[in-house]
Amino acid sequence: MSAVNAGKFIEEMTQAKGEWQSFLEKLRDTGKTIIAVEHDLEAVAFSDRLMVLEGGKPVAYLELRQVAFSYPRKMKPALTGINLNFEKEEITAITGPNGCGKTTLTKLMIGVLQATEGEIYLAGCPLTDYSLAEIGSKIGYVFQKPDLLLFCSTVAEEIGFGLTNRGRGCNPETVQKRIKFYLDYFELTGYRNDFPLHLSQGEKERLAIAAVLANEPEFLILDEPTIGLDAYRKKLLENYLKKIARLGRGMILVSHDAPFVNRLAERVVTMADGRIQGCNERKGNDGYEA
């Protein structure tokens, strides 16, 4: 094909793609559900839901391939040969003894740390292609130390911060409604105007979880969410997590709290010494299917 013909061909193809997209958009406006099989990401950019297939199988929401990580100036790697898949609608627990790399693994998944080897994929794309904010808008992360998440002057501001400042921001009424809901649900209404770092450990934990949940992320990673919570608050958190799981939002729980993990998780990944030791499928857990 000559250079002139190639140019004309590309022009015609681009025009055809534009027409195809506008046709699909018109069809969508009629309320029809469209399932499009497409290899061109640009062409499906306007789709509501994207399922990426590779080798005939859907790509996991979060995928770790041969991931390894070493902290600077440490001889021994913190993580080695991690291969894991996390589905969007699944609750997975990661357990293991102190220092086995659980928190490091979750920090790699949200891009706070960068893997020294291997690849991490989020919704089919390499994690390195996303900015921290893009990851944050997809994955809600609750740090093991809630203090790291709290930076506002009042409890109410803390819950509404993401809603107010993200993108064009939510409408003020919606923000106030959601703040009220989460303050009530996590029993923080009485502390509405308090300074977050003045709260007790359990209250800080509840606030950190509420602040992350208020953003309604697609997926959650909770690092030791039950630390400092009494039995009643643990039950409240459990009920809420079950509720959002029913809405199709998956999560990873890093926890030493065996009863809590057993009641919630469909799959338990056990780690030891920076490696995956086992993966126990617990499908059919009637704990949250009820």
């Binding site: 900015s131 990851i135 400042n165 992320p217």
Partner: peptide
């Protein structure tokens, strides 16, 4: 980091 993880670019 915490601000960015709340989805704020």
């Amino acid at each position: 980091t915490a601000i960015q993880l709340r989805g704020i670019e």
